[in-house]
Design a binder for these strands. Sequence first.
DNA 1: AAGCCATACAACCGCGTTTTA
DNA 2: ATAAAACGCGGTTGTATGGCT
Length: 299
Amino acid sequence: MGRIPCCEKDNVKRGQWTPEEDNKLSSYIAQHGTRNWRLIPKNAGLQRCGKSCRLRWTNYLRPDLKHGQFSDAEEQNIIVLHSVVGNRWALIAAQLPGRTDNDVKNHWNTKLKKKLSGMGIDPVTHKPFSHLMAEIATTLAPPQVAHLAEAALGCFKDEMLHLLTKKRVDFQLQQNTAANYNTAISQEEKDNTVEKIKLGLSRAIQEPNNMMPSNQPWDLSENFSGTSSAFPTLVSGFEYSPPCFGNEGDGSLSWNQKLGDENGEESEGGKETKIGSSMFNSECDLWDIPSDNLMNSMV
DNA sequence: AAGCCATACAACCGCGTTTTA
DNA sequence: ATAAAACGCGGTTGTATGGCT
């Protein structure tokens, strides 16, 4: 019963792949495809586990992968999608052509989380820390609130020291940005926004073909911009507003401005980049569906 | 120049689900 | 029908690299 093992565990090489191994694997897959990972290392003359081969191929060798820096538009995409689906890296990566779940996860953990934290935004909930603190504080008795505030200040002090000593953050810009986000919208609007995003994703999962025309560029703008939605305008290059907060005033600080343009370079392509995903395409009106339908297909 | 530290990312691990002998 | 391997995914670790002291 059962299958044959994928490899002889004690006879497999581990650790970094050499260029020779990469060549062997790539040329074998080019000829025979990826049908059977168990046979691939053996047939390709590799002393590797099939699983290791699969990871190497999917995360690094696949010819359709991008290997360069993430563009601003891609970063915005990740943040927006993360605010909706959380750590569902494969789901997020599926919306970013040429990026793998591993890429996205690494980029999130090494860069984006810190950027958001530096802006005073909790990368888990995508809410401002101040907002979270206020929420927690409402559940506490006054003496406990004082302790909470003290503890929070201690945490922020360390963070601030870290940021300042690293000299990597334009402090002034951080303040502006944080102020921008802290201009809160009503709780009702926030809830609405979250519901709408979830609904859009739910529809996308249910009707991928309708939601994702093959030749249509990603465009969140029709559904998420303007006054009817609390969801931010996510067009014109570098704008970013976490979905929980909506656009306030002109809301026009650029992405680079808001996050502190670390390298001063224009985003990849440098053009008006419509971000978000085709799952939010304007073909269907996401907002007209009863919210009962929403969560069934989520998660 | 050497040691230390932070960062980025490739690779591995573990677990739940799916597939198949 | 069942058991065991393959698969897919998220979390974690290991290591190469570069900057700073």
